[in-house]
Amino acid sequence: MTAFFQTLGMSYEWAWFVSTICGILLIALPLLLGVAMIIYADRKIWAAMALRRGPNVVGPFGLLQSFADGLKVFLQETIIPSAANKGIFLIAPVVTFTVALMAWAVIPFNSGAILADINVGLLYVLAISSLGVYGTIMAGWASNSKYPFFSAMRASAQMISYEVSIGFILICVVLWAGTFNMNGIVKAQQDHVWLLNGFVFNPLLFPMWVMFLISGMAETQRAPFDLTEAESELVAGYQTEYSSMAFAAYWLGEYANVLLMCALNATLFWGGWLPPLDIPVLYLVPGIVWFLLKVLFFFFVFSWVKATVPRYRYDQLMRLGWKVFLPVSLLFVVLVSGYLMATGHFA
């Protein structure tokens, strides 16, 4: 895209700047629209599983429900508790929302459609996802209120715990792909096992994918790991004191994070923009269609789990993270690297 702006008579630096801004808008705007629709989809799926109708009043089939909700919170008054630490209280939702959008820079939508095709793409994702916890901690502390504070404590412990095993899982993927570049990882999955595109069809990496899916739910604080906003214990967790657009920022950020986890599942284990089978006919369909189909499928899985699985207890959550996922993922790092060495994968 930089080359296109250069033909308009801009210098290289300006062309790069303008094309990057355009790229960010091209990702962020559809993403926000997608988040609005995905909230609607989440509520519909959740309702269908509980034999309810879900949102069906605003617009045809209730399609405009999210926009109506958005308008509602936009018109609400922003209430800042008098005991709150004002600056941090207001920055916290901005941090959550920004961080949720930042990681999308390295997600490949198609073979060339990636905003920042950097060599350390996967490390960047890890770095950004580790920033996500700050929005929650800051909100919990700045609210100066009991329940948000408990929630912030829970969130930070939970996210640190699950990042450790996610790190090990990603190392397995990187070992097999031989690169941290996201596009490189997708390409490495082509024709991985008998015409199947995707690391998940590999018996050594399939358990890693299952663990990644579960860790992803814990990392994004989705049910059954939504202890940070467990309404029976903590009212609404770290968002208790928030209202209006600050609340909406958390809401959007949370769903953008869930979509990001779905995109990571698709990119790292299910072949990203590659079709499921390595057959020439399937490549006629644009890669972005395959990618979005995979993302939507994983979002359905996330909603499905949210609708059906009861909430974990906190000690069970910690046990799962530290005593089950950590040793198993460490074991698989040894197994995968051992297998790759034995078969001379990189010789």
């Binding site: 490390l123 580790s130 920033l131």
Partner: peptide, 9 residues
């Protein structure tokens, strides 16, 4: 990236 992951994260 390590600085962000280890120190910040």
């Amino acid at each position: 990236m390590l600085l962000v992951i280890v120190y910040v994260g």
